[in-house]
Design a protein around this nucleic acid. Structure first.
Lengths: 123, 123
DNA sequence: TCCATATGTCGAGACTACTCGACATATGGA
DNA sequence: TCCATATGTCGAGTAGTCTCGACATATGGA
């Protein structure tokens, strides 16, 4: 993930509809959702949504695959990894003392156990 | 970090000059840099830079503090933590199996070792 | 007060993004 | 081929962003 790619990703996520679409597709991993279904759920015209989906795709955050008449979109976990890595690693810059607490704060997000309740305490 | 705040942060970082300024200020933690120095280093007019700095500040990514006649800007590590957390935790959505590998990829970025010969000095 | 330095704010032009109607393309079925 | 469904592309209007000259504000020194 270089700076140009990061800017593409940041731009793509800096728009309410697209951010919600991305989160929606994250929830629907690994099955994905067809374009029409996404547009319906977000209450956005299909052509407007098509533009947003193209921008997210160009940023590498989602990927399209045709399934019969539908085109199913899926979130790209690799992109999230790359973008979060860019944010955190970039801050390191040879200075782990800055970066370490950032990662330490992320780790409790995914404990090696199944969460029974939805509580996520941060702060 | 809620969605609105995340969008502010993504928008702020989705611009080449601002992304570079943010990285520059990360390198200069915890001393920071005065606005004029930032503008000079980036070869950008001072008023243009002032606008960019205001946007980064409004997004919570940096903070200003007056020191005599200068206004010194510093990166906010808390914001990086929040944004990276939003990216990764948000992907969890009650599904640690998605999130865990993302964090696992970040961890080796900051091994628990001290920087040996590379002295970190502001130049 | 006056001046120099340091930074912020305003306004306008150029550029870009968002939206959506209209049309085009692609698939499946009869 | 014809039709219905599903999605993409184009064009135009509106709105927002980026940039920078000009001016305003804030600090320190004499």
């Amino acid at each position: 993930m270089d700076a140009d790619q990061a800017i593409l990703a940041f731009s793509a996520l800096a728009q309410p509809t697209r951010l919600e679409v991305f989160r929606l597709l994250m929830e629907h991993e690994p099955d994905g959702l067809p374009a029409g279904e996404i547009a319906r759920r977000m209450d956005v015209p299909h052509n407007t949504m098509s533009t947003h989906l193209a921008i997210l795709t160009r940023a590498g955050l989602i990927e399209a695959e045709r399934q019969s008449r539908s085109i199913v979109y899926r979130a790209q976990l690799e992109a999230v990894r790359g973008l979060a890595g860019f944010l955190v690693k970039d801050c390191c810059g040879g200075r782990p003392e800055l970066c370490a607490p950032l990662i330490a704060d992320l780790s409790p997000c995914c404990p090696p156990q199944k969460p029974s309740s939805k509580e996520v305490a941060h702060g």
